[in-house]
């Protein structure tokens, strides 16, 4: 049956086989990128900006900032220099992605006294915690911090070795003229918040804020960490275009068959349904062959990020893209004149 279906349809089958392989690789790369994205940046987004204060005279600046600013969707980290731990204070406002929590909870929004001397620690830090009356405590610089949550992801990451303290406690450690990182849900929010930080600072204070370095357009596509995805995307688009041409040729080859069916008085819906059935058979065979060919790549290139659900997505995309390619040549060839095949 397989040989029979493939007869005369080799190019189309091969196109779908290759498209399946490409799509699988692209999906795996995207998935891996998403998983590694924050890990590679110490869990800051690519939009995060460093800043610090010079000549900050207002010790209550952050209380004032958080209570008065109308900005929302940002998070500020206060970096605590330490050779043993990666410690940062966290304060956020609004709906913003902070860090994934494996157990317990994260800090409350804003700055509050209730959050004083609390901590969220990574999975590896949990082993070094003290247990008091059924609660865990992290001790740093002779101060105990009650652990309210454990940060972590399914796979090991840098998060496992990090410690997050409530923002006010870290100000006690570093002072207000510290190193900070501003992050947020999008470039616009970060930019607005950066402006607000400068706005609310006393006149004599100098805010050293890193410049906005977000690339756009073609430069964005070819940034180093995005390059592999971009290349896979280009390869996929190339194969999609070639699949369009192959589908077009396949339908053109059926022109005579369509004409004969019309000579025999077959209704258009009968002709179209036969073509679609044929198309689905070839797509499915090409897809299955593509999956088989992808398996060595999975092991060879360690594309462990491919999931079973991705295979369903790949199949749907392969079928849908092919159907899109089918529409125009099918409509064109359905108008074939029967006389073309009579002579």
């Amino acid at each position: 049956m397989i040989v029979k279906v493939l007869k005369g349809r080799g190019m189309l089958f091969f196109s779908f086989l290759v498209m399946t392989i490409c799509l699988s690789c692209v999906l795996s790369t995207i998935r891996r990128y998403n998983a590694n994205e924050r890990n590679s940046r110490n869990f800051y987004s690519e939009l995060a900006r460093n800043f610090n204060f010079m000549n900050m005279t207002d010790e209550g600046y952050w209380n004032r900032f958080f209570s008065e600013t109308t900005d929302s969707g940002f998070v500020i980290y206060n970096i605590v220099p330490d050779s043993d731990y990666d410690i940062r204070g966290v304060a956020y406002k609004g709906d913003v992605k902070t860090i994934p929590i494996a157990e317990g909870s994260f800090f409350e929004e804003g700055l509050s006294e209730e959050s004083r001397h609390t901590a969220v620690v990574g999975k590896e830090i949990v082993q070094a915690l003290e247990d008091k009356n059924g609660e865990k405590y992290f001790t740093y610089d002779d101060q105990e911090y009650k652990v309210i949550g454990v940060a972590g992801m399914k796979k090991p990451s840098r998060l496992d070795k990090m410690v997050f303290l409530d923002f006010k406690s870290t100000l006690d450690i570093t002072g207000i003229e510290s190193e900070y990182v501003l992050d947020g849900k999008n470039a616009e929010t970060i930019s607005e918040t950066a402006n607000s930080i400068e706005y609310y600072a006393p006149e004599e204070t100098v805010v050293h804020m890193a410049l906005d370095d977000v690339k756009t357009g073609v430069a964005w596509l070819f940034e180093k960490e995005r390059l592999t995805r971009t290349l896979y995307g280009v390869i996929f688009v190339s194969f999609f275009i070639s699949t369009i041409m192959v589908v077009f040729l396949w339908i053109e080859k059926r022109r005579k068959r369509i004409g004969i069916c019309r000579l025999l008085g077959t209704e258009n819906r009968g002709i179209v349904s036969e073509i679609l059935r044929d198309y689905l058979k070839i797509t499915t065979l090409g897809y299955l062959a593509g999956i088989v060919c992808t398996l060595p790549l999975v092991y060879g290139l360690k594309l462990w990020d491919i999931q079973v659900s991705d295979m369903g997505v790949v199949y749907m995309l392969t079928v849908i893209f092919g159907l899109l390619a089918l529409v125009v040549p099918l409509i064109k060839n359905m108008h074939v004149q029967v006389f073309e095949i009579m002579r």
């Binding site: 005579k256 068959r257 004409g259 004969i260 000579l263 009579m342 002579r343």
Partner: peptide
């Protein structure tokens, strides 16, 4: 028809 019009 003259040239048979069979599907190859």
């Amino acid at each position: 028809v003259q040239y048979f019009a069979l599907i190859d």
